[in-house]
Design a binder for these strands. Structure first.
Lengths: 261, 261
DNA sequence: CGGGGTTTTGAGACCGGTCAAACGCCGTGG
DNA sequence: CCACGGCGTTTGACCGGTCTCAAAACCCCG
């Protein structure tokens, strides 16, 4: 289905249970110290002896894990761009996030013991593998680290609340505007330009993520351009007026706010 | 504003920073053992010496905590019904959940150090107070407990994903139907009737929670009644056809599902 | 019995979805 | 190098579900 599939059939199509336990098809492996990792997830560095964690590379289209796969590792995005989705009982796919550097993957597997979501790499990307058992042991030895693990999960939860928040009440235009603004800030945090960048995902994926039709995404982008807030050309985005994007808010709060008793 | 406010003005209107650190206005306090708590959140009981956690009672309209309040405790709902909300920069209120027995409150404060949400009791309710520092200490002593804490948070995350999932793609009728079905199952799990119960929240709160207008909630309830699936009279609900409620699904997946590369 | 809040019901408007078609980008193969 | 074909994107027309606005009925509680 995808042109790249044939090249990496053993991991992309055949879907072995643990693709990264196979031979590394890229031939490249790196290792991160615990200190590096702490830094990446913005956690106070814990001084630890000689802990090292494996890096794994993924090609576009390769899956990091899939639903129902036994949980044993968390992952931290070291570089690249990915897509995490969840599939309902009917096979409908819903985009949950577009993870990038610093994001944690796999937390949804801690509870049930199997991953609930699917993560696909959308570019060449590199992940740090954190075997969960090892993490727990560190937690025992380093209370601070344990705390920060919890905090990271809380952060993930808050992030989802933000999305949830956006999906209700916001008009299609506001959703796309916020999406662009969030991307912009994210890129800025990663050291890229916040005003000029390329979308890594299709209109369809954006629409799915935001809960609107892909045609609407296209129309809204055109509208935002007409309003002079951005320039769009296919995947290339220029942001002229970040404030305008951010300030698009809840559809109409005309009626009184929810009474608080 | 609310008739009950005057009775408990010191906690409901004046909003002291930590209402429950004031004199207990009900005069009643209970204590739970760690084992009891483990049981409530469906966690393997860890045998611990003589740990006890304070109970706190709340009257309708009383707040458990509010945004920006310093975080130091988690709470477990021991009894009663509550409402958790988040407020955006413009003061718009969004209902995040209707916590009831067994639910954990306050996890959103772990990361930032302050609570991000507000929790209001909608009935007389009783919460178990878990000082976060104490929890961390238990985590050190009991690895199993620590793991389960993480799992509980992962569960919360999964639950939110479910809501997120429902809010996209589902028609207004399907949202309300699912809401009722979820409530029904929840009540069943608590030992109440799953087919006959009272709503604790207004149409406005339901609509806010589901991302639809309160009038639409009202209309959908009427429609579900016409279809013979339920009976409604104000807050009193009878469910005749649970399967029908559950089976209302995504609006129309006519178009092909998101290609998986 | 009165009043505020909640719920219901109706009518009209509009956003966004659906369907359809055309265009352009890009990789492929001749 | 160019022609072909697939996929992503754009644009238009139409339709329908929901929202908005409005008003009346109802419930609860004082």
């Amino acid at each position: 289905m995808h042109s790249l599939s044939s090249h990496y059939a053993q991991t992309s199509d055949a879907l072995p249970l643990r693709p990264h336990l196979l031979e590394n098809d890229t031939g490249v492996k790196l290792w991160s110290s615990l200190a590096e990792i702490c830094e990446m997830i913005e956690v106070p560095v814990v001084d630890q002896e000689d802990m090292r964690f494996q890096h794994l590379k993924f090609k576009p289209g390769q899956r990091v894990f899939i639903p129902a796969q036994p949980f044993d590792c968390l992952y931290i995005v070291y570089s690249g761009f990915l897509k995490s989705t969840i599939v309902d009982e009917l096979g409908n796919e819903q985009v949950l996030a577009f993870p990038m550097k610093g994001d944690i993957l796999g937390v949804d597997g801690i509870d049930s013991g199997t991953y609930q979501t699917e993560v696909i790499s959308q570019s060449v990307s590199e992940l740090i593998v954190l075997p969960f058992k090892a993490l727990m042991m560190i937690g025992q030895a380093k209370p601070q680290f344990e705390l920060e693990m919890l905090a990271a999960m809380g952060r993930e939860l808050t992030r989802q609340q933000g999305l949830l928040f956006a999906l209700r009440g916001l008009s299609a235009e506001a959703r796309v505007a916020r999406f662009l603004h969030a991307l912009s800030e994210r890129f800025a945090a990663l050291g890229y330009s916040s005003t000029e960048f390329n979308l890594r995902m299709t209109r369809q994926e954006i629409g799915n993520y935001l809960g609107i039709a892909l045609e609407t995404v296209s129309r809204v982008l055109a509208a935002l351009q007409d309003e002079g807030h951005i320039s769009v050309s296919l995947k290339a985005i220029k942001i002229h007026n970040p404030e305008a994007l951010q300030s698009m808010r809840r559809i109409p709060p005309r009626r009184r706010v929810l009474g608080l008793q």
